[in-house]
Design a protein around this nucleic acid. Structure first.
Lengths: 132, 132
DNA sequence: CGTCTATCTTGACATCTGTCGAAACAGTCG
DNA sequence: CGACTGTTTCGACAGATGTCAAGATAGACG
């Protein structure tokens, strides 16, 4: 069976088009562009990983994803940290584009934005091609 | 394409069976254990995301995964940061269990440890129900 | 053995992060 | 309107992080 060949991890910046050694000018054309692209891509995706890089936020995401809509009060209850801290983490998650929220009366509900997760999933394991 | 419903994100800490909470002193029982487990899981996985949460490290991973074995010198050349900084990032990646390295003469080669990536991939998109 | 290259470790420093308490803001209910 | 509950913002602070320069270590080569 083909183990998921990861893929960000296998985005191989060098396999773009006519890649490699097609010209001595390697240091100036495609490769460079590819590399730049990779850099940008990394800069764009790293924040998502970073946002998920905190235990509290990871668990928060887990809880939010587990229920269609999660109320802040429920989330707060499940942690040992203060309300403001949870609020802060939710803001980080929100700014990373991982979740979105809406106010319904007194309560605020959060839900996961599938797009972001797909991005990560794709980066990590989907993307055929690669295979190492 | 992959419309899989993420999964860390859906690990629903409450769906754990009566996982023998033989610990007597448990304030409650299953719920607490389940939650503890979830917390532990988050604590265990967050570092992986965190390690990937830096653009340099993410790109480093990408490059390492792109080639069976990547030499530090090649990696260093591809970035604008100093050698020690690359070394530091590689250490972070190594300590997170994402990569491993070996010295061959003068050079040190790095490669990706599939396990870690699988963990992340599983967490993000695969894993059907809970954990397993 | 001495020297050179490649890589890692150490120490220092500015910045970012996670956390809290206090206060502000948003809505509901009496 | 006024009091109360839920959530976010503000200000502050300890600790973590990313980066560099300088020095240390590992192995190759003469």
């Amino acid at each position: 069976m083909s183990k998921q060949p990861v893929s960000v991890l296998t985005s191989r910046p060098d396999e773009e088009p006519a890649e490699q050694s097609s010209g001595a000018a390697l240091a100036c054309c495609a490769p460079l562009a590819a590399r730049a692209r990779s850099t940008e891509q990394a800069a764009a995706v790293a924040p998502l990983f970073k946002a998920l890089g905190d235990p509290v936020r990871l668990r928060l995401m887990s809880m939010i994803a587990s229920s269609a809509k999660a109320c802040v009060c429920d989330l707060t209850d499940a942690f040992d940290v203060s309300g403001p801290t949870i609020s802060h983490h939710l803001k980080v998650l929100r700014e990373a584009g991982l979740v979105d929220c809406e106010r319904r009366g007194t309560w605020v509900y959060y839900w996961v934005r599938p797009q972001a997760l797909e991005s990560l999933g794709t980066l990590l394991g989907a993307a055929g091609g690669a295979a190492g």
